[in-house]
Design a protein around this nucleic acid. Sequence first.
DNA 1: CGGTTGCTAGAAATCGATTTCCGATAAAGT
DNA 2: ACTTTATCGGAAATCGATTTCTAGCAACCG
Lengths: 326, 326
Amino acid sequence: MSRITIKDVAELADVSPATVSRVLNHGPTVAEDLRDRVMAAIRQLGYRPNSQARFLRTRATTVLGLIISDITNPFFTSMVRGAEDAASKAGYSVVLANTDEDLDKERRYIEVAAAENMAGVILSPASATRTSIELLLERGVPVVTVDRRLQTAKVDRVGVNNVRAAQEAVIRLVDQGCRRIGFIAGPAEVTTAADRLSGYKHGLRASGLPFSRELVVRGDYRIEGGRAAAATLMRLDPRPDALFVSNNLMTLGAVMTLRDLGLSYPSDIKLAAFDDMSWTLGLSDTMTLISQPTYEIGRQACELLLRRIAGERFPPRHVVLGATLD
Amino acid sequence: MSRITIKDVAELADVSPATVSRVLNHGPTVAEDLRDRVMAAIRQLGYRPNSQARFLRTRATTVLGLIISDITNPFFTSMVRGAEDAASKAGYSVVLANTDEDLDKERRYIEVAAAENMAGVILSPASATRTSIELLLERGVPVVTVDRRLQTAKVDRVGVNNVRAAQEAVIRLVDQGCRRIGFIAGPAEVTTAADRLSGYKHGLRASGLPFSRELVVRGDYRIEGGRAAAATLMRLDPRPDALFVSNNLMTLGAVMTLRDLGLSYPSDIKLAAFDDMSWTLGLSDTMTLISQPTYEIGRQACELLLRRIAGERFPPRHVVLGATLD
DNA sequence: CGGTTGCTAGAAATCGATTTCCGATAAAGT
DNA sequence: ACTTTATCGGAAATCGATTTCTAGCAACCG
């Protein structure tokens, strides 16, 4: 409950608060013995500067916000680690917030980040058009988006080329003999969903296959959505000979549906999906997987953010990393 | 980049800053028309109080810290949600930090929580003996631990009775005919690991089976650790007829090992494990699972924390929720 | 030897809010 | 009608740090 302030330290060391501050910050202009006395007093009292008070004067914090849509998703977990590693190397800490793809929650956490004057924010926006980051931008808090783009503001973004990756996966399926490829798309508001759908269409065109509306069903990027979407697709007549699912959790759902129907892959139906799924142990061994360099996405996003925080000015940058098909 | 302060609002509304503050906080003692003018000015300028400055005066924040050992683990994910729901109901926000079971990282985030003067902290300590929370306690920041206990300080804790749950699972395995039950334990520093090991021993004793040192191998609560531990156990001669794994991620590893050896469960060997694993789709259908009410753990931990924050004083409380065997 | 330069360290202003204290005004009581 | 009381709102102090400004002192130079 104690409140040890710079003044207490100053008194004990018999110097002025200004000197204590100098010892802690821009060091050199303080005499050896004073410096020692101050350090001793600090240790003795267990003094820690009040970061709020410090901020009031300096406007500098060392906490980054990482606002993501679903911490359940291993995709994001590895990204968090990449960001944390880059941040701690630079002396910053990362706090996480989970939005659950919920715009209200997202707005609340953006408010928190702004109110706490975080040094910068890495965001995977729940919506390209309805997520608003002006609260941050108008306060000068830099923002970098990961995975998804944002249409409401021009900010840096780190991700992969979703269009191309999706296209390649479709071509791969066609090479395996598929002709009727069902696509489980993501939420309409998310740019990755749109990009992947667009890649799906490109892939069909490139393969000379027709695009059919009925073969596309939207899900919510969660397990349940994938399950329902797959069920819808599998009721079609004739039924698809392949499913292409646009994220990992929905793929789990789709596999559940296939099980329920007694279908196995790849014998009865081929599967392709976005994102790493190695944690499912074998479920994904026999499907085409598009994996993204998630750790690297987090790392680079954080480094970009740190450069913005340091004050570098350059046009909004899109870092596009390679996704791999395997 | 703009800095809109209470002074700007006061000027525009042609009142004093004190009045603006009164409008925002303890309302009633301010006249209708002034109140309206102030509100209009606030809206017009998009004013938001600087929370650091406010804190300096009031010493009250509305951010809770949730410091957990592994956000990858679905166990914690659901807990986070429980805590978030309880917190937001009370007007608090939750920020997460991920320690990766790493004591250094953990210490860093405890420092962050203290430096940021978070209102309270929910912690799943990486070590019962080496995790130090005095930084928080001496500043009056209440702490509640979840899942694991802490030996370095007497604080509230919410979790399940790990000893009993483990014991029951062992008895269940014995009922299924198992006589040589291998146990994959968790890290020595974590209380849940010790409790579960102890429950395993109790279960054996209650079933009249001998305890054998060689049947216990320690893992690190991660996939790799489970894999290695299972491999060690399966090299024993005679090999175990059951494996009891003390958390979900290690169970994944153990299953990987069994696959590699060409063994299937429950025909060749029986499995029991702690924690929900429904996200593994079928992997866990045929094993004995001890599931914990994770959402509820998070919710109750948060409510306990909020009571402490509100200043309630009562002896450190241990809330023990029921784990279920299925 | 006097005056200038160069440091060091303290006093005081400052950041942006809240809150205490107090004066002014209006309402109420005699 | 005049004093007393209540209420409202402004001036100023405060929270805990940083930073500017300045005084004091020593060293250096001509």
